[in-house]
Design a protein around this nucleic acid. Structure first.
Lengths: 405, 405
DNA sequence: CACTTAAATAAATGATGCGGATTAAATCTG
DNA sequence: CAGATTTAATCCGCATCATTTATTTAAGTG
């Protein structure tokens, strides 16, 4: 915890006001005052400063003025053009980059179909750099107008240090990707985060967890990720590292031993198993990363027993892991996200069944398990949101820099 | 997050100063200034107020004045007599109650050999009330001089509400024990917490985790508990509920299915298994809760294969759970506590072996697993510490009341 | 034109922390 | 032994910030 001085006090209240404006759309000062429990004077002062700084704009007369007699409220909203940020997401078979404005509205986005794992780090950095420059240009902006860049990728990421400790995308470890990109982008601040953290923040801001301060996100992609929102803050492990759900150990349904969850329930392992199951058949070519999961679903719906069993095994393993996570965190909501969920009920139903079979009665009803499918842009938007969160100036997180406008 | 006002600012800095004094013993103002990064003036003002309030005392001239030329520092320390609190711990076969001063030094303690589970809640409340009154009297104090009481017990406890949601000690659920005791104790504020949270705080304050801001505590007692310290704060689940490690699901070594960890590795289950293994033998009587674990150890050392296997199974199940916890939290230290650890290496070695066998290489060395045996008094001291922590006035936790001196 | 609500503005208050100057209490030095 | 030096702690003045209370301006309704 930081030591308190007037500056911190101002930062905290400023953040509260910004957060209220972000969350409750166009909103009048009085309502900010009500919601934040700050005095009207303080809100007036802070909003005044924010208006001077150009971070917010007045949005005269929302329209519906029912039962209003006195002076009409003037609504405040984030100034979409106050800043622009770029979010990028590295997935196994593509890279998505989006440029957003200050409200996380996407202004331009671009998806590069690249098999990331096939290339070295420097090639990927090249691609990302070019993609960012392109996306920024597409949005009609200069790179110098970009306030920050956030890159999301699967694996274990130490955000504070900007280092990717380990990722299924790269053979290398401890890659200082943030520094590398900051250098390439003429000093525009680049940060790194685990992709699941991005989607967790995105759920909190735009998704199914709006207003929820405690929930879990389990992403089932090439790797398996876990995002933890606790008391409205993203929970990061001891060193700012996120947990890698793929390293969780589960009992495989066939009985013997223990395996890493990633070996049963990741997209990669499911497709590998599927290839094995259908070796030399006509479908082999289709089970590549990418649209492979849809192919799996097709076969499952067609009644292919091997595929159904495979998906059930994955679902049960995930269910086991999620049941244990519910025991540990008692979250009101668990959100499943990721391309692998495209496999649909064949995966999700065994998952749900396993969770409800395993949970003790006392926890049976605490967690609502929902599936949320995200488009590529949404992940990139999450990355942008992560940068915006810093820009809004949350004073308590370990997040560092203030906005440089 | 609360909105910031000068009062919060003062509370934060005051807490920092108090915490520095608590942690670094007799300490001079300059050193507080160094450690907290508060200005000397601020420290002076705050310590002045604390002196006026009688919360701290000057401890003139520590003794060793090496290489000192200028004005000697006057050392400050917590005023042991500034307040007194009572900590109590409910265990399956005894209740321990301790009265401590403001520095968590135990002034009197008492242990009642009671089979708690045999009695109803109201009987237990009677016993606790009487024990507290007795302990307070033994310490030469009046009940009115007690600033707070904290009761620790195994199970799922909702601290904020003062309700025990579920406990292996009681058949009932949702017991509003805190309110009940506050009533009985003439209004002295009683709080409730999970016993493992108490021992976690105690480790942080007095134990093996001094100075560590991230660690886990796994308590192996009648039930299984998990305490999580994250960034210097106790991590509580979504509703302020602590997790119940016993509900974690593990694969039993014999292979089939999944069982709750509590069914393999709790003291209760181990003793039950032992009884079964040695049914009708001369030792049956000894395997009762209480000193039963020592008896187990004896047999294990004597080479009793059934007992050794049983302890190994428990150790492996715990190891599995702990490996997964390390994956999730990456804590630098995991502390094992609890009476069941008296079983010694026969339990702990398989545990360690399992953890190192299961952890992925990247996490192999992050967590140091240590065993810490606690006396009854230490648990009660942890309960007292929990109350003191409130008294010191941590402004951010959901802890409520300020000290009423 | 009176009334109502929203918002800004102003002044007074009180709390805080900070920096620089000052006092306090020792040791060192000649 | 007296003054210089050093370090600790405090005092004084200053700036910041939020709060309260009033007052004013704005923009509507009836």
């Amino acid at each position: 915890m930081k030591t308190a001085d007037p500056e911190l006090m101002r930062a905290i209240n400023r953040f509260h006001v910004m957060d209220a404006i972000r969350r409750f759309g166009p909103i009048a000062r009085v309502e900010i005052s009500d919601r934040t429990e700050l005095s009207a004077t303080t809100v007036s002062a802070i909003t005044g400063a924010l208006l001077d700084d150009g971070l917010i704009i007045t949005h005269q007369l929302g329209g519906i003025r029912d039962a209003a007699r006195g002076r009409p409220r003037v609504l405040l909203d984030l100034n979409p053009d106050a800043a622009h940020v770029v979010g990028a997401r590295l997935a196994p078979d593509h890279i998505t980059i989006a440029t957003t404005n200050f409200r996380a509205d996407i202004r331009s986005s671009i998806t590069l179909p690249v098999r990331v794992g096939r290339h070295g780090v420097s090639v990927v950095a090249d691609l990302v750099e070019d993609g960012i420059r392109r996306s920024v240009a597409d949005a009609g902006l200069e790179l110098s107008q970009i306030s920050g860049v956030c890159i999301g990728l699967p694996g274990v990421v130490e955000r504070g240090a900007g280092i990717c400790r380990a990722s299924p995308l790269f053979g290398e470890r401890d890659i200082p990707l943030a520094a590398e990109l900051t250098r390439r982008l003429d000093g525009v601040a680049a940060t790194l985060d685990s992709d699941v953290n991005l989607v967790t923040l995105a759920e909190h801001w735009f998704g199914q967890a709006r207003g929820l301060d405690d929930f879990l996100v389990v992403s089932v992609e090439m790797g398996l990720g876990l995002g933890i929102m606790h008391k409205g803050e993203l929970f990061r492990g001891a060193n700012g590292l996120g947990p890698d759900l793929g390293d969780l150990l589960v009992k495989p349904p066939n009985g013997a031993g223990l395996v890493r969850l990633a070996e049963v329930a990741s997209e990669e392992s499911m497709l590998a198993d599927a290839r094995r199951a259908l070796a030399a058949s006509e479908h082999e070519q289709a089970f590549r990363l990418g649209r492979g999961m849809e192919k799996l679903l097709e076969r499952a719906e067609a009644g292919d027993a091997a595929i159904v069993a495979l998906l059930r095994a994955a679902g049960e393993a995930l269910g086991f892991a999620i049941a244990n996570l519910i025991v540990l965190f008692a979250p009101p909501k668990v959100i499943l996200a990721g391309a692998a969920l495209a496999a649909g009920e064949a995966l999700v139903r065994p998952l749900r069944d396993t969770v409800s079979a395993l949970l003790p009665p006392s926890l049976a009803d605490v967690a609502d398990i929902v599936v949320h499918e995200w488009g590529d842009e949404d992940w990139a938007r999450g990355a942008a949101a992560m940068t915006l969160r810093d820009l809004y100036g949350a004073p308590w997180g370990t997040t560092g820099p203030a906005p440089h406008l």
